[in-house]
Design a protein around this nucleic acid. Structure first.
Lengths: 349, 349
DNA sequence: GTGAAAGCGCTAACAA
DNA sequence: TTGTTAGCGCTTTCAC
């Protein structure tokens, strides 16, 4: 190692081989261990004088509390497990960022798991994470493999599901209705007078819900069934391009409007349209879903159904914090919070 | 809580109020606690027969090992702290994803901290995280506030710095030279015959290094000093647009080529150029840095200096794993791995 | 191949 | 306001 073991006079404890403990601090400060503990966790119970001595001692020997030991003794790890399908998508990234921020401010660390939209992954991550005794768990989506769900229902760890709505949450839910998103997209396009539709959708749980809402609303309105291109997860720009290319090649007539399950796909659709000299939105309207910042400045402008990833993250984290602090019993029932979404029109540049 | 406390016959331990422990397993299996521990951690030392009985017991009572206790006793938490400036940027997101994946496969969980490019944040995150006794730490960048650095040098926790190169790493380093990236950009543009330059750069540590490399190389070549627009972090699409707009408004003549510290900024530059009927690359060349997938399909195509975020993450994680497993002493010196970068030309559509 | 004893570093509960 | 006594649930010796 490049690091030199300098003869730092303060390093007496670190040279002794093991990290200084609370007992070391207590000795230096001339108090009992529990007083040191109190200075750290409930300073109000300790006299000014003792606090001073203890803090001085902590600085002097470079003491860092061992939270493994603390967690074991107090049965509270001050960690939250967060499981998301991906962070490569800017909107989930915003949510993750907001969650870690909010939790960090409240003194909780975030244990991150990325499930890649795989049940098996999610299960393994949970398995691994439960052993750490997290004080709370935040999960993306409302579908979870049956055994995972059961495990979570039995645990008394507060669970927040987010990014979706469901009639039977495990515990607490902070999200919005993807079915409604799809319906809103269809309603919007129908109101604009469009009648010949196509759809490019990813095939993950929530994208499929949106698509179903979209298709169902169209069916109810009695318009022709749209051509649908389903693309694999994670949705990449180029998949949108390929998706619409296939649709346009096989379509018997012109397409009025294209529904995309995400802005990323919508972007690909737009570029392909541009290649083919199809003007947007005059020749073909495009509606996306997700992160407005992206589509707002991409030319030509498209209509987007916008959700605020950061806001969802913040609210999910706050719901969890409330849950964790509401006494540790299951007395308080978990709630459902609908964060909603907004349709953002950007027809004219 | 919505969850019903069902009269599940197996839930005898969970209804008893506390989670089953290793001792509970031992009783059911008719062995001593240490045997249970061995089945979990060193199964080779235990007879087939005993293993069977223990595993059966574990399933029966739904035992989940308490890693807080395990970590305390074994002085190894099997957690790694990861501190990044942001994940809202797809390239860092890839790195984070690769790191968590690689570590998870090796049985380590990732404790995520997001520093928002703030020293103070980074410090607090580290402070908070050190108490969890992580087995390793992965940090973004090579600059760290002096006190953070000192703290880390004294610790015997393996540290991997990534996403940059430096002559004096704390321990191990996996990254590439940002100065060289800037130089390569300048060399590339100069070779194309460009002479009147502009630059739009973010103002974080590494972006500034790239910019400096770019400017220095131009200065050495004796060309006029470029107009530079520095934009705040995190770089958003629109900042690129505003940056180049300001430059074009104040420039006394045409600009041959624009250097951008990231593809996100480059995208903004391109859109603004499009608005002003400046053709790319014929009228004005643009070079970016970061994630090829983004710029490759954005029209018009630009040249990008590409780094593979996932690859960097994987290598950083593997370096850390090697470090953590190389006996716990500081015997093995930390190494420096240069992951390099590539110049991707996309001049013609 | 298995077990008994002794902590890991901290905090809960009670007492003074 | 402070301290004492017992653990938290596991792994490390070391013994058999």
């Amino acid at each position: 190692m490049t690091k030199k073991i300098t003869k730092n006079p303060r390093a007496r404890k670190s040279t002794s081989g093991r990290a200084p403990t609370l007992i070391d601090v207590a000795k230096v400060a001339g108090v009992s261990p529990i007083t040191v503990s109190r200075v750290l966790n409930q300073p109000d119970l300790v006299s000014e004088d003792a606090q001073q001595r203890v803090r001085r001692a902590i600085d002097e020997i470079g003491y860092v509390p061992n939270m493994l030991a603390g967690g074991l003794a107090s049965r509270s790890s001050r960690m939250v497990a967060l499981i998301v399908p991906t962070i490569a998508n800017s909107i989930f990234a915003e949510t993750v960022q907001a969650i870690t921020d909010t939790l960090a401010q409240a003194g909780y660390q975030t244990l991150l798991g990325i499930s890649a939209y795989e049940d098996e992954q999610e299960k393994q991550l949970l398995e691994a994470v439960l052993g750490r005794r997290p004080d709370g768990i935040i999960l993306t989506g409302t579908y979870h493999a049956p055994d995972i769900r059961k495990r979570l229902e039995v645990t008394d760890v507060p669970v927040v599901e987010t990014w979706d709505l469901s009639p039977d949450p495990i515990d607490t839910l902070v999200g919005f209705s993807h079915t409604r998103v799809g319906e809103a997209a269809a309603e919007y396009l129908l109101a604009k007078g469009h009648r010949r539709f196509a759809a490019v959708s990813a095939n993950d749980q929530r994208a499929v819900k949106r698509l179903d809402g979209f298709l169902q609303t169209l069916a109810n309105a009695g318009v022709d069934e749209p051509i649908v291109a389903k693309v694999p997860t994670p949705a990449r720009f180029q998949l949108g391009r390929e998706g619409i290319a296939g649709i346009l090649d096989q379509a018997s007539g012109p397409i009025d409007a294209v529904y995309c399950s995400s802005d990323t796909l919508a972007h690909g659709v737009m570029v392909e349209a541009q290649q083919r000299n199809i003007r947007i939105p005059q020749d073909m309207a495009v509606i996306g879903f997700g992160d407005l910042d992206f589509s707002e400045y991409t030319l030509p402008p498209i209509t987007t159904i916008r959700v605020n990833g950061a806001e969802i993250g913040r609210r999910a984290a706050m719901a969890l914090l409330a849950r964790m602090n509401s006494g540790d019993s299951n007395a308080v029932p978990g709630g459902v919070i609908d964060t909603g979404f907004a349709v953002i029109e950007r027809e004219s540049a």
